[in-house]
Design a protein around this nucleic acid. Structure first.
Lengths: 163, 163
DNA sequence: CGTGAAAAATACTCGCT
DNA sequence: AGCGAGTATTTTTCACG
């Protein structure tokens, strides 16, 4: 019936609005959510359940002040690997994401092969991480740091127009 | 009493565990959360409230499948600005974060001045964004793209040891 | 601070449209 | 699909240890 890739029963306006709202505040009651959208709570609940079952909603997460987790320094590290083989990429990615300082790992196309999003207690700990953890690895050819001074982030993403 | 910076009444083990759990699943009932931690629901509720009031918990957000939002291509764009004045930085940051494709903007130290996290429908739209939106701006001296092939991300961050 | 039980609010079910 | 009334859970309050 549906292709293997686009087996998603296309989100309508209501689904979009629900998803939007739950990105903004995932703990609002189903009742409030329904009222805000002008539909019955039971209808709303069923929609949310389906979105969850379809995998559109992947989960609900608390956003925590990084400082409360002793993460006052943030950086993006770009690395080049050698040799650039699938096994090396996979194992490097798997090893890095396990480290507590590492928030995300991206395999990228560009001048470098990896982009690693890191947070640490302070500059000293960041430096220690780079020297003791990262550059220690044999597959790391070079790395380059971008330390974050300021940032602005969205917490809710709208649906982009089709094509 | 407390300094202006560290006015946070230091999180104990219980707070840590709560924060950890709510990062993992922000919609679990207070009852389940309490049971998981081995405390009374009312105790748990009070702790969560305080964490929220203190700003440790900043909010609760649904995580959405990017594909459902027509965001199938992801990239990090590094840019150099000119002139590098405070007003230019601030206005560039403010303008970019408003664009629907832009998920986050980071002012960084390094070879470049800005790092922009972008998602778009496909490569064509990403390219259009770079050409029509980004390089159009007079303050953009150069930009460099890192297109994401794969990624691994954490959704829950543990508290790092003090020092 | 943490607890337990009562009271208020909410989630969830289900028959109907 | 969406709705609304009824039932089951849960949240929230509060007096007490």
């Amino acid at each position: 019936m549906f292709g293997t890739l686009a087996m998603v029963p296309t989100m309508d306006e209501l689904d979009s609005a629900i998803v939007q709202e739950l990105q903004r505040d995932a703990r609002q009651t189903n009742r409030d959510l329904a009222r805000h959208l002008g539909i019955a709570p039971s209808t709303c609940l069923e929609r949310v359940r389906l979105l969850r079952a379809r995998g559109v909603i992947r989960g609900y997460h608390a956003e925590i002040d990084p400082a409360a987790l002793n993460r006052r320094v943030e950086a993006f590290i770009s690395t080049r690997l050698r040799p650039l083989k699938r096994e090396v990429i996979d194992s490097f990615k798997a090893a890095l994401i396990k480290l507590p300082e590492v928030m995300a790992v991206y395999v990228v196309a560009g001048d470098e092969d990896f982009l690693v999003h890191v947070t640490a207690q302070d500059l000293d700990h960041l430096h220690a991480f780079l020297i003791d953890r990262l550059s220690q690895r044999r597959e790391v050819l070079t790395f380059r740091s971008q330390i974050v001074y300021q940032s602005a982030q969205k917490r809710a993403y709208e649906q982009l127009p089709e094509a």
